[in-house]
Simulated scan of single mutants.
Amino acid sequence: MAARIRSQRLAYRLGRFLMMAAVALLVALAIGLVWLVAISPGQPHPLRDASGNVIPGSLSERATVEIGGIQQSIIIQSIDPANPVLLFLHGGPGMTEFFVEQDYPTGLEQHFTVVWWEQRGAGMSFSPDIPPETMNMAQMIADTIEVTDYLRKRFSQDKIMLLGHSWGSYLGIQVADAAPDRFRAYVGMAQIVHQLRSEVMTHDYLLGAYRARGDAGMVRRLEAAPVSMENGLSPEWMRLRDAAMHRAGVGHARDISSVVTGIFLPVWRVRAYTLMDKINVWHGKLWSRQFFWEDLLRDDLRARLTEFNLPIYFFVGRHDQTANPELTRAYFDVIEAPLNGFYVFENSAHSPLFEEPERAFSILLEDIIGGQDMRADAE
Rank of each mutant, 00 (worst) to 15 (best):
A2L: 12
A3D: 08
A3P: 00
R4N: 01
I5T: 01
R13E: 12
L14D: 02
F17I: 09
L18C: 11
M19L: 15
L26Y: 08
V27M: 07
V27D: 02
L29N: 06
L36S: 12
I39N: 06
S40G: 03
N53M: 07
N53W: 05
P56T: 07
G57K: 06
S60V: 14
R62D: 01
R62P: 03
T64R: 02
I67D: 12
S73G: 04
P81G: 11
V85K: 05
G94T: 05
M95N: 13
F99E: 02
V100F: 11
Q102H: 08
P105K: 08
T106I: 09
Q110W: 12
H111C: 08
T113W: 05
V115R: 11
W116Y: 15
G121N: 01
A122Y: 01
G123H: 01
M124D: 01
S127A: 02
P131R: 05
P132G: 03
E133F: 01
E133I: 01
E133G: 00
T134R: 12
R152T: 08
I160P: 15
G164S: 08
S169D: 08
D177I: 05
A178V: 01
A178G: 05
A179K: 00
D181I: 02
R182E: 01
G188V: 06
G188N: 04
M189Y: 03
V193D: 01
S198E: 10
E199F: 14
E199A: 15
E199T: 11
D204N: 15
L206T: 11
L207V: 09
G208K: 10
A212T: 00
R213Y: 04
G214R: 00
G217R: 04
V219H: 07
V219L: 10
P226F: 13
V227A: 01
M229D: 10
M229Q: 09
L233R: 14
S234N: 14
P235E: 14
P235S: 14
A248G: 02
G249W: 08
I256R: 07
I263T: 09
F264V: 15
P266F: 05
R269I: 06
R271F: 05
R271L: 10
Y273L: 13
Y273R: 04
M276C: 00
V281P: 02
H283R: 07
L297E: 04
L301P: 11
A303I: 06
E307T: 11
E307I: 09
V316M: 00
H319L: 15
D320F: 03
Q321I: 05
T322E: 11
A323M: 04
N324R: 09
N324V: 07
T328G: 13
T328L: 06
R329H: 05
R329Y: 04
A330E: 14
V334C: 10
P338K: 06
N340A: 05
H350K: 03
S351A: 14
S351H: 03
P352V: 04
P352Q: 07
P357Q: 12
R359G: 04
S362N: 06
L364R: 07
D367W: 13
I368Y: 05
M374K: 14
R375H: 06
